[in-house]
Structure formats: structure tokens, C-alpha cells
Design a protein around this nucleic acid. Structure first.
Length: 151
DNA sequence: GCCAACGTTGGC
DNA sequence: GCCAACGTTGGC
């Protein structure tokens, strides 16, 4: 089993939104970056994911979800009504992928970005690297443990 | 709202 | 295949 971190703007899809839909799965759509997409392709059912809230008041890791369906073509890319529509993507050759996630837990207290930045064990996490804009990234076993212990 | 850092686009 | 211009991300 592998671990991951995915960013989301809580206005769009927060940990609370995932919790409300549980036990139903939530489609993780709208990833429009090739590097992030390629990382998503590595995800397997049962993998666990840190849900990170970005571009908001309380920035940090808010909880945990798990992968319940591995990558498949993101339907939003074909939907002209969707903000994630991509006119250049063809049905027989989709550009973008989605996965389905299911709520696991919400942390009692969000683990703030400041704290993450200050933790020696997390210095290699892509999240804290300068200028990093990856919205999907791998998390090592050691990093995963460190984060769960810090909450 | 600002702006640094990055990814993508498209002309050449 | 280079690279300038542009758009986006995301913390502050």
C-alpha cells in the first residue's frame, strides 16, 4: 500500500464535503497537470491519501481519504459545461484522468502548513519544496507516520 | 490583491 | 527545439 497527498481548495471540495458524501465515493476530477496526472496513475485501490486544504484561511492537512477506484478518464474533460472542460481532449484518446476517493477521517485539528514546514522529517516532502506546485504527490511511509503522529 | 515560481503555448 | 509571452498556482 502506498501513501499520497492531494491538494484541494476547500471551497471546491473540502474534507467536510468528502465526509458528507461518505460512505459514497467522491470523484477526484479536474487535475490538469501532466506530472500530477502521472502520479495519479500510480495509485491503487486501498492507498491512503492526505487531504490538504490550499488557498484558504486554514492551510494544511485536514484529514485522510482512501482510493476506492484507480485511474480512469476524467469525464469533466468532455463536458463543455464543466470548468475542467478540455476542447483538445478526444474521447478515444483522453488526456486527463480521475480517481475515486472515500472519506476515512477528519483530523480533530488541521495540521497547519507552518507545522509541516518546521518538522525535520518532512523536509523532503514536495509540498514544502520551494516553488512546488504539484497538486498530487507521493508520501513516504516515514512521512506518513510523522504526520499522523503530529496531529 | 500581490507576486514569485512554475507550466504551457505557439511562433520562428 | 528554442524561448518569450502568457496563464495558473498558491502562500502571504
Amino acid at each position: 500500500m502506498a501513501y499520497w497527498l492531494m491538494k484541494t481548495e476547500p471551497d471546491e471540495c473540502s474534507i467536510d464535503d468528502l465526509a458528507e458524501q461518505a460512505p459514497a465515493a467522491t470523484i477526484w476530477e479536474g487535475v490538469r497537470n501532466y506530472q500530477a496526472r502521472n502520479i495519479m496513475r500510480e495509485m491503487a485501490v486501498g492507498d491512503e491519501v492526505l487531504i490538504y486544504h490550499s488557498s484558504c484561511k486554514l492551510i494544511g492537512v485536514a484529514g485522510v481519504a482512501k482510493i476506492v477506484k484507480s485511474v480512469y478518464p476524467d469525464p469533466a474533460q468532455f463536458d463543455p459545461q464543466s470548468p475542467y472542460y478540455d476542447a483538445k481532449s478526444q474521447k478515444d484518446k483522453p488526456r486527463w484522468d480521475a480517481v475515486d476517493v472515500q472519506f476515512v477521517k477528519k483530523f480533530k485539528q488541521l495540521l497547519p502548513l507552518d507545522t509541516i514546514k518546521a518538522m525535520p522529517t518532512l523536509q523532503e516532502l514536495a509540498l514544502v519544496k520551494k516553488g512546488n506546485r504539484l497538486s498530487v504527490m507521493p508520501v513516504s511511509d516515514a512521512e506518513w507516520r510523522a504526520i499522523l503522529e503530529a496531529v
